[in-house]
């Protein structure tokens, strides 16, 4: 493990000539966005703030000059404190948030599990949400039909698929979201803080599914505060701190440095849990 600046990281993270080609290339990426100062920005509120000559927007520099590569078939774990820029970076890899500068190249079909949710509307049924989410992601009806039973069976929600999703518990909601994401047979799977959903039985099942995906040469980017899962699943771990890469390297070493930095004891079980 080494302490690396963003520009130092690239040579280390870049694959050797014999290594598989990069599935994701992140080159000097910075992401800055403007966020409203009001919780709920309204026309009336904005005019009022402008009249009082008060600022209506603040600038958030979420990611700062970050470079790394994720070789095909690699599981990259991203760790960091709240507000470190982890979710923003993963959303940029998914094409949801644009980089302000730099370039992101993604080779392959991406499936995402970012906002711990699937689909569009809680008033619609589970079945309708799976169809809408799949079509929005660019799948055809034939592809969805081929995968639908598998998704439902994995989520174990056969009797609930024709009920509105507002009747689902948080666990059921999470199970369906996870099942959709992992069963779309993506080349690249991006998961943000959503590894552990449902009851103990489903947690075990989802963890096993993740291992299966890892072993079948899928490229996975995993954001989690669960250090135990990171150690078991990730090939490399990237530690983001205030939008910059603090460390990049083997999971055990990066996690140890991170926990030392966060002043968490090595045997602290709370930090080990998947959350």
């Amino acid at each position: 493990m080494s302490s690396l600046s963003a520009s130092d990281v690239r040579p280390q993270a870049a694959p050797a000539p014999s290594a598989p080609p990069a599935a994701i290339k992140v080159q000097n990426v910075s992401i800055t966005y403007q966020s409203a100062l009001q919780d709920r920005q309204t026309l009336v509120g904005t005019l009022s703030r402008l009249r009082r000559r008060r600022k209506i927007l603040r600038e958030v520099r979420a990611v700062r000059d970050v470079s790394f590569e994720v070789p095909r078939g690699t599981v990259l774990g991203i760790i960091g404190a709240n507000g470190a820029g982890k979710s923003t970076l993963v959303r940029a890899m998914a094409g949801i948030l644009p980089p302000t500068s730099g370039r992101i190249e993604v080779h392959g079909r991406v499936s995402t599990l970012l906002a711990l949710g699937v689909g569009f509307d809680r008033k619609l049924t589970g079945r309708q949400n799976v169809v809408l989410g799949g079509l929005a992601a660019g799948l055809s009806r034939e592809q969805l039909a081929a995968k639908y039973e598998e998704i439902v069976a994995f989520a174990e929600l056969e009797e609930f698929m024709d009920m509105p999703m507002r009747t689902y518990s948080a666990g059921m909601y999470g199970r369906l979201a996870f099942s959709v994401a992992v069963n779309m047979e993506p080349d690249i799977l991006l998961i943000d803080e959503a590894l552990s959903v449902g009851d103990a039985h489903f947690k075990r099942k989802s963890f096993d599914k993740m291992r299966e995906l890892c072993e079948s040469a899928h490229t996975i980017v995993l954001v989690s505060h669960g250090m135990n899962a990171m150690r078991q699943l990730a090939d490399e771990v990237l530690w983001l701190h205030k939008g910059q890469i603090r460390e990049y390297g083997p999971p055990r070493e990066v996690i140890r440095a991170y926990k030392r930095f966060m002043r968490v004891e090595d045997d602290d079980q709370t930090a080990e849990e998947d959350v």
Partner: peptide, 16 residues
Amino acid sequence: DGWADAYTPEVNVYEP
């Protein structure tokens, strides 16, 4: 199993 045809491999480039 037909997924290669269905899921056309693609390259997405995101830049400002």
